[in-house]
């Protein structure tokens, strides 16, 4: 058996990594070496009191008052992910309902843009009808207008069909996801014991409470920023109480 020095033996003991022979050696060393025994006693004092400060009050350190600088946000942690990978990760992370909303908004914006464009075409056509100089070109331009109108309508129809298909796809995906989640939750609820559920709900309540505290801090920070902005606009605010 190799001879272990006191420091190594203590370290192994503290990390719970002593094997049988090392444990015997440790006990022997404690009995034979009073200095080692005293060191172990000191270590025990700390080990037994690791949570002595658990109830120590955390000071109100006014985190909303200190300003933190801007970091370099262009350097994300997962730089190895391509945009496609990130997109697929985002889609699979339960945010697909936001995807539906954003696609819907994009479609609305497209329809509005197309309608505005056709309206402008109509205005232009009215102007040309009222102008005799352009009358000679009427027939050909009328045909062009008609073609443009047809194309625009065709595009709108295609876009609508595409949007509807996408919406249907998203709705299906969302429904499937919800069904899977519900199934998973039901299976979990059925399989877990009452005690586990109790603990989970306690965790949930704790989580919600933490979220509430975080929300309060977040809003306090927002108000603080707003206050700073107001002071920046008007450096010498009117003291209402003096007026």
């Amino acid at each position: 058996m190799p001879i272990l020095d006191n420091e190594t033996l203590l370290a192994l003991w503290l990390e719970g990594a002593l094997d049988d022979s090392q444990h015997a050696l440790f006990m022997q060393r404690c009995a034979d070496d009073p200095e080692f025994a005293a060191v172990v006693e000191q270590a025990n004092m700390f080990t037994e009191n690791t949570d002595a400060f658990a109830q120590w009050p955390l000071p109100q350190w006014k985190e909303t008052e200190w300003k933190v600088p801007q970091w370099e946000r262009n350097t994300p942690i997962n730089t190895d992910l391509s945009w496609m990978a990130r997109l697929s990760k985002w889609m699979s992370s339960g945010h697909s309902q936001y995807g539906v909303i954003s696609v819907g908004l994009s479609c609305c914006a497209l329809v509005i843009a197309v309608l505005t464009f056709t309206n402008q075409l109509g205005t232009q056509r009215a102007y040309e009808l009222s102008n005799p100089a352009t009358m000679t070109q009427m027939l050909t331009e009328q045909d062009i207008d008609q073609l443009v109108q047809q194309k625009v309508e065709q595009k709108i129809t295609e876009q609508q069909q595409l949007s509807q298909a996408m919406f249907a796809q998203y709705a299906d995906a969302l429904q499937t996801q919800q069904l899977a989640t519900s199934k998973q939750l039901t299976e979990y609820l059925l399989s877990s014991s009452r005690q586990e559920r109790k603990e989970d709900f306690a965790q949930l309540v704790q989580f919600i409470n933490e979220q509430r505290v975080n929300d309060q801090r977040f809003y306090a920070q927002q108000f603080n920023d707003l206050q700073d902005e107001i002071y920046a606009i008007n450096p010498s605010p009117i003291n209402i109480s003096q007026e």
Binding site: E7, T8, L10, A11, E35, A38, V39, Q42
Partner: peptide, 16 residues
């Protein structure tokens, strides 16, 4: 890691 172990041992001996 050996330096850490040595520092810890010295600290506990000093506390004693």
């Amino acid at each position: 890691p050996n330096t850490v172990k040595a520092r810890l041992y010295s600290a506990l001996a000093k506390l004693k």
